[in-house]
Amino acid sequence: MRAGLVAFLASLLLLGGCDPTGGAGGPRLYLFVPSSMADLTDAVTAEFLRVRKTEPIPVYQSSAGSQTLRIQIEGGAPADVFISADPEHIAALEEAGLVRDVRTFAYNGLAVVVPADNPAGIESFWDLPRAERLVIGTPEVPIGRYTRLMLAQAAAARPPGPGEARFDERVMARVVSEETNVRLVRSKVELGEADAAVVYRTDALGRHDLLMIPPPPEADVLAEYRVGLVVGRSQGREPDLVRVTAESWIDLLLSDAGRRIVSAHGFVVPR
């Protein structure tokens, strides 16, 4: 019995060590970023730590679909900076009073990606219905919403011939899976399991295992990234210090140096 009690107490101690908001540790920064931007924000954080005059601070980055991050913040997750891949999810948090100082800092386009060996023979955007297996995002994740918008615009630009189904309907009939973030969408093509997928243009850059097919201008969609300061989630950390640190990270992102990093990763910066 005593041994069991000791083991129980020991496991509690171990748990204490895992507490992410843990008391004894100093300040730290939590970034909640969309999957499509994880590499970019890593680079911004590296620059942030490099130029920082004071002692280094641990920065934790959580990347997922913007809708997932939003739900996590609504549920009380420790977050200091939130970036959303569409205006909708960050606006919801702003209205709820959980995020403030929301600003647009990057744009992105969409792209169809196919495996390098292109098994379905998709040469142009309009070949998309040829894909036997197409993977897109769920309606909730920004990439999924943008994809549906792109398909609807394409269908409007090219009305179907007599007896033919609309372009977006023919494409949606080829969807075999809906994923909750854009990197999961892309992975299905990288694994060679999907014939095609719709991702952001930046997700297709510098990938030798993928071929990128941009949509025609009349169908393209401009994805808008917004950053905001999360309020009231300092959870035991010094609130003012957290706010100042988070603000300085955002300031770097919006600075000229930050803009250079943003465009180096293939995103479009606002004028």
Partner: peptide
């Protein structure tokens, strides 16, 4: 393995 599509998987 099976993906996520309403009605199918």
């Amino acid at each position: 393995f099976a993906g996520n599509l309403t009605g199918t998987t």
